[in-house]
Design a binder for these strands. Structure first.
Lengths: 217, 217
DNA sequence: CAGTTTACTGAGCATCCGTTCAATGAAACG
DNA sequence: CGTTTCATTGAACGGATGCTCAGTAAACTG
């Protein structure tokens, strides 16, 4: 697991830090939060026991670094998905849904770690902040696109806030399925369910397969 | 916290067991799963250290008993809400929403405990079973009512499965808000959001305040 | 090529955790 | 009322955990 070519010192340093964070993710995902100890993490990373304290000062700070990395990776991923997509709100909303189930960010392992932190969020304020930021900005972006689709597409009586919240919550519940019962989870089925939801709200722009017509009247 | 009138032996026994479970809930909610130790729990319950092992054999079994009680309390609550409600599906669905935000089951403390168990679910199979059963039967019941409303109310093109999932997920995300940012949470606002969602799907039967007309054409 | 810096090791330490168990006293029983 | 049953206590134990620190070797520096 830990292959460390003898290169420059900073590269080794960064590599080791990353190995430790990855080992932490692996450990939390497979053993759980409570069973994740520094000994197991360092063994997984292939380094000695005391290294965590050297690099991260304390176990708690290693955990925070892990959560922050996960959070930033996720945010960066859907931000880039937005940049790559067409500029019309229909394509952008579809891109958000697609990116949320991409194997890069939507892994059973990562979802499990995310829920593990969420479970401890109540009692550790630092986690709460990161967890709140997680999808707060995400649902803001979704709501903007949903509002634009409603206005440009000529839909009346759409409750933007509710639609955005429901879509975000739907995605979340599908993630949870991946964690709790991965056998019944399917990436395509999950995306289809999101698009079926959107088809119910914007029938001229979406169907269960995704974008129907990004410029429909 | 532990007031034990000297009554019969079984009553004392049950009372102590309940005190321990309550103390476990309090501890998980305020200190988190990781920081919940038998010493803290027994101190909170006002009994001696070794009593947990006497009553529950092990810490793990105390945790399972706690989760099961929470789960059963919740299920019993919305089942009774269904019984007390009118028999038409519109009233029943409204009763489910109402009961889900009732102060008896929807407390910040209880939600926090629920998420704490969910966070450890991945690595402990027993939790997974309970967590899965939790809203599995709940969403089945919701889906039946939604289907009935669509058929009786003359709505076409309703995707029952998606509507039920989205509503369940919406409720879940509102619960999470209660845990993470209780200041911005409001019981009435949460119910209103659910009803706003239902108003979007069944505009002749719901508005943001709840049931509009349970017998609308 | 000395000398300095620094990532890294691993044994050691203080602490805490879950569990055990002999002792205790009050309810249950006949 | 004497005996049994059992909820309860609290000290004790083995083990694990997070963290410290003196020591080491390899990368940097000039």
């Amino acid at each position: 697991m830990a292959t460390k070519p003898a290169t420059t010192r900073v590269k080794r340093r960064d590599r080791t830090r990353q190995d430790l964070i990855n080992a932490t993710i692996d450990s939390i995902a497979s053993q759980g939060f409570a069973e994740t100890t520094l000994e197991k993490v360092s063994k997984r990373a292939g380094v000695s026991r005391g290294l965590v304290n050297f690099h991260f000062v304390s176990k708690e700070k290693l955990l925070i670094a892990t959560l922050e990395q996960l959070s930033e990776e996720y945010a960066a991923f859907w931000n880039r998905a937005l940049e790559k997509a067409d500029q019309d709100p229909v394509s952008q909303l579809a891109a958000l849904v697609e990116s949320d189930f991409h194997p890069r960010v939507c892994t059973r392992k990562k979802v499990a770690v995310w829920y593990a932190f969420l479970g401890e969020a109540r009692s550790r304020p630092t986690y709460t902040v990161v967890c709140n930021g997680w999808d707060r900005s995400f649902s803001t972006v979704m709501e903007e696109r949903i509002k634009a689709i409603a206005e440009l597409g000529g839909y009346t009586g759409i409750d933007y806030e509710v639609v955005a919240r429901a879509l975000g919550a739907l995605i979340d519940s599908l993630w949870r399925d991946l964690m709790l019962s991965p056998k019944s989870f399917s990436r395509e089925g999950s995306k289809a369910m999101c698009f079926r939801y959107l088809a119910g709200v914007f029938p001229r722009h979406f169907d269960s397969e995704g974008v129907l017509d990004s410029n429909a009247a």
